[in-house]
């Protein structure tokens, strides 16, 4: 039977939803599931991880030098724990994509990137060419599987369990050659794009940074995260970290609403796992309508105010 270790992603206060998605992937693999939480002052996060079902145990490693998610410091801790496990999983977020290959190299294996489906304990499906092809990969059963889980492909595991939390001391000393300086965030109070249940996005048709405010207004009405097309970001209507697409964020909200986005391939790649895609565009020939579940040909400057009044 498999023994699966998941490396938790968190900001010291809350567990990132991506971790609960890794639990669902681990469940599909089958076996015991433990979660490792690295950081300093991580009591609340470890307790949250222990509630995820069906997690067997949580290993909390607390040390000052683990406070920030530097791969050079986290990877040796993961490797120290990994020997007892058949699988080590992390999310395909920027944290997981930075950390997991470093773990894999130290373990001496190739990593399976972006598991989107589990066919067996050592058989997985993953996308290549930005999702334009799906490959089946087989891992040697006598080697540790180190993998990232494509968060857009998995639902978050439920909460309600009560796994034991085990405290362990850090096994490695801080890497002196790498220093965390800080994090600049621009998102504010709105839900994070990766974990938002609803996402409202705007494209170049918004026309200016000022008019992009319409998107924020509707998003706040719906409690939605805000995204943008590459064109809108490049035009300076909104910051980089809001870009949805192959070169931005790949997301899977239950509801995705695209306003004034034509639907370039690179944007579609980022949204095709959304539950329901709504597209509003003046151009009835816009490619976004080929992938939308509900389409509306119209002027977003009329449609958005109408939607707001209909929503009361």
């Amino acid at each position: 039977m498999s023994r699966i270790l998941i490396i938790a992603e968190h900001d010291s206060q809350t567990l990132n939803l991506a971790t609960a998605k890794c639990v669902s992937c681990a469940q599909a693999i089958g076996g015991d599931i433990d979660i490792a939480v690295f950081g300093s002052a991580i009591g609340e996060v470890a307790a949250e991880a222990a509630k995820l079902e069906p997690v067997t145990g949580v290993i909390a490693v607390e040390a000052e030098h683990l406070a920030n998610p530097l791969a050079v410091n986290w990877a040796p801790e993961a490797v120290a724990i990994a020997s007892g496990y058949t699988h080590v999983l992390g999310p395909s977020t920027t944290l997981g994509r930075d950390l997991m290959p470093r773990i894999a190299a130290l373990v001496g294996v190739n990593q399976v990137s972006d598991i989107m489906e589990v066919s067996g304990p050592h058989s997985f499906k993953r996308p290549i060419y930005a999702g334009n092809a799906i490959t089946d990969v087989e891992c040697a059963p006598d080697r540790t599987v180190v993998a990232t889980v494509r968060t857009a492909s998995w639902k978050a595991a439920g909460s309600g369990g009560a796994a034991a939390v085990e405290q362990r001391a850090a096994s490695s000393s801080p890497a002196e050659h790498t220093r965390y300086v800080g994090l600049e965030t621009e998102g504010g109070e709105r839900p994070d794009l990766q974990s938002a249940v609803r996402v409202i996005s705007g494209g170049r048709a918004l026309g200016s940074e000022e008019k992009f405010g319409l998107i924020y207004g509707l998003a706040d009405r719906l409690g939605a995260g805000v995204g943008a097309s590459r064109a809108a970001v490049d035009a300076g209507y909104c910051p980089n970290d809001m870009q949805v697409g192959q070169t931005g964020k790949i997301i899977s909200p239950d509801l995705y609403m695209a306003f004034g986005i034509s639907g370039a391939i690179q944007h579609i790649t980022g949204i095709k796992d959304a539950g329901t895609i709504v597209a509003v565009n003046k151009d009835s020939e816009a490619p976004i309508f080929e992938v939308s579940d509900i389409g509306l040909v119209g002027d977003l400057f009329q449609v958005i105010p109408e939607l707001e009044s209909l929503l009361g």
Binding site: D11, L70, T93, T94, L95, D98, E176, H177, T178, R179, Y180, V181, G182, L183, E184, T185, E186, G187, D192, L193, Q194, N240, D241, K249
Partner: peptide
């Protein structure tokens, strides 16, 4: 300066 999901992370590396 690193582009991460939560924004821009800054690290110094020797």
């Amino acid at each position: 300066t690193r582009e991460v999901d939560s924004g821009l992370e800054i690290v110094d590396v020797d």
